[in-house]
């Protein structure tokens, strides 16, 4: 019984939050890694792209809500998501036309593109604050829980409750669908294959008649879709705040690099590695260990490896360790 309690506590406080957070990071890291693989630079504006997409989705959600449209037990934001993606796609395509294309045509060093993306980051950050402000926004509606902690306790007779929020399950399901669609697209369709060819060897791809403009445009649209989805899922799960999204850039980069920049599978693995380590290192294991240990023994300390505020530090410590020992990431990534 104690062991079961321990397991439930672990599921409730570590496993479920980490899986949801990991899915969000994986979607974000996929966007970063696609840009790196095909456009060949680290996009520092990615966090703010996510924020923009989410802001647009929130605006549409509000419009739907005030029109009395809802999605039953699911959050209304899901209906608004396609419109948010469309708006973000327009924005990133416009940005590419106005900013990145010039440097691409001039064959500028990748680092110049990174500096340009810093400029884009500032502009998008300002734009998002301009449009929707800096306050924290909760935009989830519909059914809040799938499994309620109290109902679970009554049903199972355990001391520990297990809560599963709708948004958490939704995050995992939507992320799984998005990833499946992405891999189907990359591996099965003509355009997807041309994208992979372009990523592997640009010159060869151009020689075989692949249209680079098309590849770039499709990449940006996919990135917009991934970024907006990741942002909306994160916002539904927690809340939307422009500054938090900028900060998400850090674990997302860590995930993409740990997995191997330019490698989509690696980005997903990296997302979960980062999420699980962040949650596990900052979780106080006292309760779980007390249940798992025989008898009534109780650890004296909290058994927390690091305080919660260090979670970004954790993701970066992992990043640096991976960079030092396996510079191309867990899965083989590319280099510039």
């Amino acid at each position: 019984m104690d062991l079961l309690n321990g397991l439930v506590a672990f599921l409730n406080f570590v496993f479920i939050p980490a899986v949801a957070y990991g899915s969000q990071l994986a979607l974000g890291a996929l966007g970063v890694t696609l840009i790196y693989g095909i456009l060949r630079f680290s996009n520092f504006a990615h966090g703010d792209t996510m924020a923009f997409g989410t802001a647009m989705t929130i605006l549409v959600t509000w419009a739907l809500q005030s029109a009395g449209i809802s999605f039953g037990p699911l959050p209304t934001a899901l209906i608004a998501l396609p419109l948010g993606i469309a708006a973000t796609a327009l924005l990133v395509l416009g940005t590419d036309r106005a900013v990145y294309r010039f440097y691409r045509d001039a064959k500028a060093a990748p680092v110049i593109l990174v500096v340009a993306s810093m400029g884009v980051m500032f502009v998008m950050n300002g734009l998002v604050r301009f449009i929707i402000g800096v306050e924290e926004i909760q935009f989830t509606d519909g059914e809040r829980f799938i499994i309620n902690a109290r109902a679970f306790k009554e049903w199972s007779g355990l001391e520990e409750g297990l809560a599963l929020r709708t948004t958490q399950l939704l995050t995992v399901v939507v992320a799984a669908i998005a990833v499946a669609l992405l891999f189907w697209f990359l591996n099965r369709t003509r355009t997807g294959k041309s994208m992979r060819a372009f990523s592997d060897n640009e010159d060869l791809a151009l020689l075989s008649g692949i249209n680079p403009d098309r590849v770039v445009a499709v990449t940006w649209i996919i990135v917009a879709a991934l970024a907006t989805t990741a942002g909306v899922l994160y916002g539904l799960d927690k809340s939307f705040k422009a500054f938090t999204y900028y900060q998400l850039l850090l674990p997302i980069f860590a995930a993409a690099v740990v997995g191997g920049l330019g490698n989509p599978l690696g980005a997903i693995a990296g997302g979960f590695v980062i999420a699980f380590s962040e949650v596990m290192v900052t979780y106080a294991w006292k309760q779980v260990v007390a249940y798992a240990a025989p008898g009534d023994w109780m650890p004296s300390g909290l058994l927390q490896l690091m305080s919660t505020e260090y979670k970004f530090a954790v993701s970066f410590a992992i990043l640096i360790i991976v960079l030092l020992f396996k510079p191309t990431g867990l899965f083989k990534g590319q280099s510039v």
């Binding site: 680290s42 990748p110 860590a254 690099v257 990043l319 640096i320 510039v336």
Partner: peptide, 10 residues
């Protein structure tokens, strides 16, 4: 270069 950037940021 870009790994150094990300590492210093972190």
């Amino acid at each position: 270069s870009d790994y150094l950037a990300i590492a210093t940021l972190g």
